[in-house]
């Protein structure tokens, strides 16, 4: 299955992926509605994008009491708006923090791989997000640990 491969070392923190995602998902440029989020590390000197890994376990699907999360044609877990009752159980169940709740629509929302043509991968100017056929893994765990160690070392050096 093709998934979003995240390569944090390449990310420069421009947040263009968030813009592209929000446009694809909502039709307007509104990064707060993006389902890919860029997080800062080491204060303000390195960044990494993060979104749903489309994990095999599918915790969100398991937790949903009304069967509103399904698997779409691209293989992504997707929220069916007409079934979602906005109970937020999926946001609690997701161990990666990539299920979101929209207070204005009262629905959950998440990455659906744009139906098989993810806008974020197109938008990233440094190829930190690729859409490739590979096993999905925790893309930023090692990066985050290493950057956190750097911060601890710097704190220690002070």
């Amino acid at each position: 299955m093709k998934v979003l491969k995240l390569i944090p070392e390449r990310c420069t923190g421009c947040l263009r992926c968030e813009l592209a995602c929000s446009y694809m998902q909502t039709g307007v440029f509104q990064p707060s509605k993006s389902v890919i989020r860029v997080s800062p590390f080491e204060g303000h000197t390195s960044y990494a994008p993060y979104t749903c890994t489309q994990c095999a376990e599918g915790w969100c699907m398991t937790a949903c009491p009304v069967g509103a999360i399904t698997i779409n044609a691209a293989g992504a877990k997707d929220v069916l708006d007409d079934k979602c009752v906005g109970c937020k159980l999926c946001t609690v169940a997701c161990p990666y923090g990539t299920m979101f709740y929209d207070g204005s629509t009262r629905k959950a929302f998440k990455c659906n791989l744009c139906g098989g043509d993810p806008a974020c991968a197109h938008a990233c100017p440094t190829a930190a997000i690729e859409y490739v056929d590979t096993d999905t893994v925790d893309w930023i765990g090692d990066f985050a640990a290493q950057r956190f160690d750097t911060v601890l070392a710097m704190e220690g050096a002070r």
């Binding site: 990310c11 420069t12 421009c14 947040l15 263009r16 813009l19 000197t45 440094t126």
Partner: peptide, 12 residues
Amino acid sequence: HRGHQCNACGMH
């Protein structure tokens, strides 16, 4: 060196 970009910019 670490890239430190402005909004939506690929100019790096």
